[in-house]
Design a protein around this nucleic acid. Structure first.
Lengths: 218, 218
DNA sequence: TTTTAAATTTAGGCAAATCTAAAAATTAAA
DNA sequence: TTTAATTTTTAGATTTGCCTAAATTTAAAA
């Protein structure tokens, strides 16, 4: 049986390997999970014993086939619960993270399937993030990071790639939500920040923010 | 913060004190939680330190005011989730227990309140058990244990006071479900078993079963 | 009322998941 | 290419929740 702590490690490793392609480093995992590097080393050994990750000391870890499957299942559950909270229980998109973080660990295949059906097989969560299906396949996405758009191009927001409360509340304060039209006015080379228009009104955002905004171009 | 294990102990103590009125014994708790008496003693000390129970060594435990409040909250969550599973996700009444056992530990007041609203403030779970409201009040019940009915009297099933799968499946095999009309034909003194009719068809059931069937008399 | 049986607690240990501090390996800098 | 800085791992502890075995207390029986 896989423990709650193990599930959280798998999820963190998945997230990190999506960002950077190569192995997740001990420090990066520790950072992600707000714990100490030594704790990470301990846990990685346990995950290695269970064949959920491949590990070379000092070189980082990668999810194994079965580890990836587990991690994707957790992401699936997390995002389905988020849809439930927003569409059925009227939560706001910046209120769902902590609760979904708990719900994602409920173990019952029947529950996940029934929830998926109940929600009408959604393909994206309330932040626009793709929801893998029963077989672990992610729906194809046509979005780009806002930071990748060229000067002058425009589109609208279809998602965010981070769901922490402070980021979402910052977006709220900028009047950015799913569907908001955005145009890139100027790219500042110095710090990679952007001059953009949000619903025709101009604003300046950092590269950090632009990286986490998913845009579908027009 | 109260841990998962602590929550399970509080729930067990509440259940035991409903059955027997006086303090829950160490052995009874161990039995209920399928653990050892020595483990129970350990945990009781922790609960005592947190002032969730009152404990006199060798004399058993009682829930404190705050312990009772916590325990009732857990019962509330358990039963609300059961309603959700049956009415929204099409689970059968004998399939909900294990999942609800996990869901009851999700911590979010907002979630419980929103779920309650979403479900329409149900007063009973799929087994007919009362659901305490936000303030911890249980709805008034007019049911009796089938074992308490007199010879010749009749009514219909409004609940069961145990939700383990084998009991519920036995009821299914007897064609007993919520609403089923029942009449007491004969009470056997020897073992307190009963001759009854279920939907006009006669059957014989043990006292153990009769105690856990809640009947509203006609 | 003494003896026996049953229930409960204590003592000592173990596994999971974490930590701090120190050692070892790797990477970057001089 | 040595040295310094950083990253990672090891060693040794701690806490939680559980265990077995032994001691103690309470209840039941003779």
């Amino acid at each position: 049986m896989i423990t709650l702590a193990e599930e959280n490690y798998l999820k963190a490793i998945l997230k990190l390997s999506k960002n950077s392609k190569d192995s997740a480093s001990t420090n990066a995992i520790a950072e992600e999970l707000d714990t100490k590097a030594s704790s990470v080393t301990d846990m990685i050994k346990k995950l290695t014993d269970k064949q959920l990750v491949d590990y070379v000391p000092y070189r980082g870890v990668n999810l194994s086939r079965s580890g990836l499957k587990k991690a994707v299942e957790i992401v699936r559950k997390h995002r389905l619960w988020e849809v439930f909270l927003v569409t059925k229980l009227q939560f706001k998109w910046d209120e769902v993270h902590d609760v979904a973080e708990q719900l994602e660990h409920i173990k019952s295949q029947k529950l996940v399937d029934a929830l998926d059906t109940f929600l009408g097989y959604p393909q994206h969560d309330p932040h626009g993030e793709p929801i893998p299906n029963k077989d672990g396949q992610f729906p194809k996405s046509f979005s780009k990071q806002l930071s990748e758009l060229e000067k002058g191009s425009s589109g609208h927001v279809v998602g965010v790639s981070q769901d922490n409360q402070s980021f979402l509340q910052y977006l709220n304060s900028l009047n950015i939500t799913l569907g908001t039209p955005i145009r890139v006015i100027q790219k500042i080379e110095f710090d990679d920040s952007l001059e953009i228009t949000i619903n025709k009104k101009s604003a300046h955002i950092s590269n950090d923010v632009a990286k986490n905004l998913l845009i579908k171009q027009i």
